[in-house]
């Protein structure tokens, strides 16, 4: 149309800063990275052997379920929704696994398949109720949380029954032995790496970009041709199946109890927010969400090393949520 082909590169700078995803604005991962580095240094000072590969890998293994849950929660939050049902879903998955396997190694793989399917099913119900019946996701998943808690109690008659097989616990407990330098490479860390790669690829795909647009402005996304209901439902499916994966790992290194998943939904949301993801959708990266989870786990480790009681760590989480959201809002305003 004219000679001005260099319009995009030669135009005057907007001079507004703070907007780019690599900067300091809401949605960027730089703040969480800095916090993480500071915390890691602090932990290293307190526990000098922390950076020995085996110790570090053990730490990553412990952090894996939360990071995986945070990745799942990210998909839902960035689309503008919440998933409060993941904590009780984790509990339900572990309790179901114990009862169905009941110590029988042969049942391990079928039950794992079933657990993943159950996670997907819960995600599907959450998604359809939220999008088709237009129930706010906060309420949908709160309802699902209560349904799962009640159903698990009823089904088990008040206390978990059965036992997990050793094969099932493998994923949470063991790893590949004899790896040079690292010693044992935990399966949990491998699973985590797999989830992380898939999550990042998903967010780089067309689906991921549309998911962000839906969270940012659902009306615009719809008028541009996006199937917003479907996209949001897929986010819930991701959250459900990743909760199942986290439950498989947690069942491995924890015991079977009704407390396994307690409060995990809030821990995951805290992690996602800490990672710079904006509640309400449209901003933030899945890498940030997972780094947020890692940071939170590091912080809890540090508090533990400093002898702060576990009870107080919940207060710390609360403060993080408040601070992160407040700071995020301020950053967005300026």
């Amino acid at each position: 149309m004219s000679t001005q082909t260099a319009a995009l590169t030669s135009a005057a700078p907007a001079g507004l800063g703070g907007g780019g995803r690599s900067g300091w604005g809401a949605g960027s991962i730089r703040p969480v990275l800095i916090i993480l580095v500071l915390l890691l240094i602090a932990v290293g000072i307190r526990q000098p052997d922390f950076y020995d590969p085996p110790v570090l890998l053990a730490f990553l293994k412990r952090a894996a379920p939360l990071i995986i849950l945070a990745a799942g929660q990210y998909f839902v939050i960035v689309a503008g929704d919440f998933d409060l049902s993941v904590g009780s879903l984790v509990t339900a998955e572990v309790v179901i696994a114990a009862r169905l396997i009941d110590g029988d190694p042969a049942a391990t793989w079928p039950v794992i398949a079933l657990l993943l399917g159950f996670g997907l099913l819960i995600g599907l119900v959450n998604g359809l109720v939220t999008t088709l019946l237009q129930v706010p996701s906060f309420i949908t998943t709160l309802g699902m949380y209560l349904v799962l808690v009640g159903a698990v109690y009823t089904w088990t008659g008040g206390s978990p029954r059965g036992a997990l097989s050793e094969e099932f616990r493998l994923f949470g407990r063991r790893g590949i032995d004899g790896v040079p330098v690292l010693g044992q490479l935990p399966y949990a860390v491998l699973v985590l790496a797999g989830v992380a790669v898939l999550a990042v690829l998903a967010m780089r795909s067309d689906f991921g970009k549309v998911l962000l647009a839906v969270g940012d402005n659902p009306r615009a996304a719809r008028v541009t041709g996006a199937r917003t209901a479907r996209v949001r439902t897929i986010a819930f499916l991701a959250s459900g199946v990743l909760a199942a994966v986290a439950a498989i790992l947690l069942g491995g290194f924890g015991g079977v109890s009704f407390q396994v998943g307690q409060g995990l939904e809030f821990t995951a949301i805290t992690a996602v927010v800490l990672g710079g993801v904006v509640l309400g959708g449209g901003r933030g990266s899945v890498a940030g969400a997972m780094l947020g989870a890692l940071t939170l786990q590091t912080l809890l480790t540090l508090l533990n090393l400093l002898g702060v009681s576990g009870a107080l760590s919940s207060a710390v989480q609360g403060l993080i949520i408040l601070a992160a959201v407040a700071v995020g809002t301020l950053r967005r305003r300026t």
Binding site: L212, N217, R219, A220, V223, G282
Partner: peptide, 12 residues
């Protein structure tokens, strides 16, 4: 209100 996802990039 209906055209743009304001927090996304020009390219997106």
């Amino acid at each position: 209100g209906e055209g743009l996802a304001l927090s996304q990039s020009v390219l997106d």
